Simulated assay, not measured.
Amino acid sequence: MLVDTLINIPYYHAVGKEMDVFKQAYKNKIPILLKGPTGTGKSRFIEYMAHQLDKKLITISCHEETSSTDLIGRFIIKGAETVWLDGPLTTAVKEGSILYLDEVAEARPDVIVAIHSLTDHRRELFIDKLGVTVKAHEDFMLVASFNPGYQRGFKELKPSTRQRFIAVSFDYPEPKIETEILINETEIDSDTAKKLVAIGNKIRNLTELGLTETVSTRLLVDAAKIIHSGLPKRLSVHVAIVEPLTDDLQTIQALKDLCDLMI
């Protein structure tokens, strides 16, 4: 987990009305769920909106071991006494920060239970180890992200949880916008950016390969960065786009051949 400081303005290119939706959700104190594949800009969008609202952003990258204790807090031994240490969720609730649960479906079920009372009219957090209930600060906002296509049927959010949020879907941007993103993020030349975007879209449409995840904008940005800094184009595409997608040798070779032709 990490706490983001709002020093540099994050670059974000809007593709719809997601900024307006976020601002209205914040104004009306409604939690928001960002749905979409990995690497489509969900985390960057939250960073950008936190900067726009001039709010502290606390990000928690959820995984199968993330528990409610990790979020709420725990007792620790300090010297000769036992003291309570607030977790990031409790800190955000008290301070009025934006709390971002990245890939919330990956967390343990007790995390979902812990945030339920924060996602309805109560806007409060019960700390069972202290026996106290904390009312959320006026500026507190809960944001979560979720990849519906990842391990479908295994890591799903229950309807009772999903319906506590308003939701915005994210997908890969259209080629023109994705090209602009690569240029702004990496200062790569326009021609190379267009070729990388074309490669990304070509692989995304190769459904017969059975890839668990396809080429994200993040992978394209990584490829653009190392090309811009001097690594040969073909090698950059191999290591930044092809290799992260699969371990199957035949699929890797097929993708490499395809990318070599396009780059």
Rank of each mutant, 00 (worst) to 15 (best):
I72D: 07
Q253I: 03
G79W: 00
T179A: 00
I241S: 11
L249S: 13
G230R: 01
S97V: 06
Q163K: 12
I188S: 02
H238V: 09
P109K: 02
S190W: 06
A25V: 05
D222M: 15
I98M: 12
P10F: 01
A198D: 11
E174A: 04
P31W: 09
T66M: 15
F126T: 06
L2Y: 07
F154S: 10
C259G: 07
I166L: 09
P232R: 13
L249Q: 12
N201C: 09
Q163S: 06
P175A: 04
V104P: 04
E213P: 02
S236T: 04
F154P: 00
S67N: 11
L2M: 09
Y172N: 02
L2R: 14
S67F: 05
E124L: 06
G16L: 03
I32N: 02
Q250H: 14
T5D: 00
P10S: 12
S216W: 11
Q52F: 11
P148S: 12
V134L: 11
E103L: 07
T119A: 15
A223W: 05
G41P: 14
F146Q: 10
I46L: 13
E213I: 04
T207V: 08
E138A: 13
G36P: 10
Q151H: 11
Y172Q: 01
E156S: 15
V83A: 05
E138G: 06
D171K: 03
F45V: 05
H116Y: 10
L71A: 06
